[in-house]
Simulated scan of single mutants.
Amino acid sequence: MKIKEIIVVEGKDDTSAIQRALDADTIETNGSAISEETLEKIRLAHEKRGVIILTDPDFPGEKIRKTIIEHVPGCKHAFIDKKDARPKNGRGIGVEHASPEVIRLALKDAHLMVNTKTEDITREDLIDAGLIGGTEAASRRGRLGELLKIGYTNGKQLHKRLMMFQISRQEFAEALEHVLREEEQ
């Protein structure tokens, strides 16, 4: 399987994991302090072939995403869940630990983030759904992020990602219903 877009990852181990999963080119950020030279490579890749950002599901990975969004808007985003990014020994977290199948699925489900002011789902909807505040909020957000393929978020990030990925009220309701049914079992 060959991917047209260039995949932005954090380091060499991530590139190796991508190449075990499929035929793709990568750009490595070499950490969260992305150089201007690397941002320029990402800009050029975006113009010529398109870019998919696939970073670790942790704070530095989110920081890299935000930096790229700020400097190169219009990139696609792929997410791997934390549970799929842990090594067998349980230490660390990263794309390099994900199986080839998980990587292929994440890339297949890559989304385009769009800055939008349209608010289909409000913050109050998230509170009412038990996704902000309460004892189950974090685990519900985690599962919802998995189902919608938008990654794990805190409450504030969830609202922003729902808007950026243009998740419809119906998609949100169906995913939430699925999460709540799982809790009952």
Results as ranks from 00 to 15, higher is better:
M1C: 07
I3V: 15
I3R: 06
I3E: 03
E5W: 11
E5K: 12
I6V: 15
I7F: 08
V9Q: 05
V9I: 12
E10V: 14
D13W: 03
D14Q: 04
S16T: 15
S16Y: 13
A17N: 11
R20Q: 07
L22M: 12
L22K: 00
D23G: 00
A24H: 10
T26M: 05
S32C: 11
A33Q: 11
I34A: 05
E36N: 15
K41R: 13
I42E: 01
L44G: 00
H46I: 10
R49F: 13
G50E: 09
V51C: 05
T55K: 02
T55N: 09
D56R: 02
P57Y: 04
D58V: 14
P60R: 00
G61F: 04
K66V: 05
T67P: 00
T67V: 15
T67H: 00
I69Y: 12
H71V: 04
V72L: 06
V72H: 01
C75K: 05
C75L: 11
K76Y: 14
K76N: 08
H77S: 06
K82W: 06
D84G: 09
R86A: 13
P87H: 12
K88T: 15
K88G: 11
K88S: 13
N89Y: 00
N89L: 00
G90C: 04
R91T: 15
I93G: 00
G94R: 01
H97Q: 01
S99F: 08
V102L: 10
V102S: 08
I103L: 09
R104H: 02
L105Q: 15
L107H: 03
A110W: 10
T116E: 08
T118Y: 04
I121L: 07
T122V: 13
D128L: 15
A129P: 01
A129W: 05
L131T: 07
I132R: 00
G133S: 13
G134Y: 07
G134L: 10
E136I: 14
A137R: 09
A138V: 13
L144N: 07
G145D: 08
G145A: 09
G145T: 06
L148I: 10
K149A: 08
G151Q: 06
G155E: 04
K160Y: 06
R161S: 02
R161D: 00
L162T: 03
L162W: 03
L162N: 02
M164V: 06
M164R: 14
F165G: 02
Q166G: 03
I167P: 01
I167H: 01
S168M: 08
R169G: 00
R169N: 06
R169H: 10
Q170T: 13
E174D: 15
E174S: 14
A175T: 11
L176M: 11
E177S: 11
H178Q: 14
R181V: 13
E184Y: 04
